[in-house]
């Protein structure tokens, strides 16, 4: 399939005022500001194919929102080229934005005091959506998100989850080809979170909408995306499938063992002992040791009397934290 987003060598440099500290700093800053350059994005290159759900992840301040802003045409990059849906986002603004939808997780695009349906109708006029097409789209969205009871109520009366459902619907009324979601599940309860995820999958399948998702919630990434782009300090650290990373790190296991009596010393070939306290011990396999439950049981019962044990691997969040750390280390 053809790539719908082509991001090549994008750099973005900001000039920010540097504040000097000291007694007369306010006056100094007021009259003569020093500036320093911040490289928000450094040669960022990636491609997204039509129909993909891409997770765009990175720690705070890594350059995620700058990228989203460039992709949605709000900012122009310092250098580099970008083609989205065959257009350059920051040229022909009005033509370009017809085909994108954006949901900023914590900012609403709907009106606070008027019924949601009125906001939707305003959006209909803004995007010049024909009436029958609008009705049809709304029907589909309503069915998928259960909006019916919400549409007649003003936004201020809705709960956080209900608001997010309406935001999602609002950004899809014009059936954009690409949807940017900035933290769509933040602050939602478990049930709504699942509903939102199902919905994202649904429109991706139904309308073939390409979705770019930024989130800190790793279960979102696991449940939704088929590709991740990992960014840190303005540079792409990794792009590819999430499973690759997972399998690379899931080989590291932690084993908690309970013995039937107190041991003074616990040792096992191929493992390190993380902690040991009389009847209890925690072990980790060395990178050279591939963990197999059967081999481990054989090995440990030969030396000690074991009552019980429990194996756990790294959680997705831990993997990510580890990844960030590694990349940070390698940079030094």
């Amino acid at each position: 399939m053809a790539s719908i987003i082509d991001f090549t060598d994008i750099c973005k440099t900001f000039k920010v005022p540097e504040r000097t500290k000291g007694k007369w700093s306010t006056f100094k800053n007021f009259f003569a500001r020093k500036h320093k350059l911040i490289h928000a994005l450094k040669n960022v290159t990636f491609e997204v194919e039509e129909g993909d759900i891409v997770g765009y992840i990175g720690p705070n301040g890594a350059g995620k929102s700058t990228t989203i802003k460039i992709m949605s045409g709000i900012l122009t990059p310092t250098s580099g080229t970008c083609k989205i849906n065959g257009l350059v986002p920051w040229k022909n603004r009005r033509e370009f934005v017809k085909n994108i939808g954006v949901v900023f997780g914590q900012r609403s695009q709907l009106w606070w005091d008027v019924p949601v349906i009125d906001s939707f109708e305003l959006l209909r006029d803004i995007y010049k959506i024909p009436k029958d097409e609008f009705d049809q789209t709304l029907k589909i969205l309503d069915k998928a998100l259960n909006l019916e009871d919400l549409l007649g109520r003003p936004l201020r009366q809705l709960s956080l989850g209900q608001k997010m459902k309406c935001e999602l619907a609002g950004s899809l009324l014009h059936r954009p080809k690409i949807l940017f979601l900035d933290e769509p599940t933040i602050g939602l309860d478990a049930v709504t979170k699942l509903a939102v995820r199902d919905f994202i999958k649904f429109i991706n399948k139904e309308w073939h909408t390409t979705i770019i998702l930024t989130t800190h919630d790793m279960s979102d990434i696991e449940a939704l995306t088929n590709k991740i782009i990992l960014i840190g300090k303005g540079q792409i650290l990794y792009q590819g499938s999430f499973d690759n990373i997972k399998s690379k790190y899931s080989s590291a296991k932690t084993i908690e063992v309970e013995f039937s009596k107190d041991y003074d010393n616990v040792e096992l070939d191929g493992y390190t002992v993380v902690s040991h306290n009389k009847k209890y011990a925690t072990l980790k396999n060395l990178p050279s040791t591939e963990f197999h439950t059967k081999d481990f049981v054989n090995q440990i019962t030969k030396k000690y009397e074991v009552v019980d044990f429990q194996v756990s691997s790294l959680s997705v969040d831990e993997i990510l934290a580890k990844l960030y750390k590694e990349f940070e280390l390698s940079e030094r």
Binding site: K69, S72, G73, I74, R93, R94, E95, V97, K98, I100, V102, F104, R107, Q109, I126, Y127, K128
Partner: peptide, 14 residues
Amino acid sequence: KSGEFDRMLIRPVG
């Protein structure tokens, strides 16, 4: 400040 201006930039209206 409210981000509403950014939102305007992604609407196909002047």
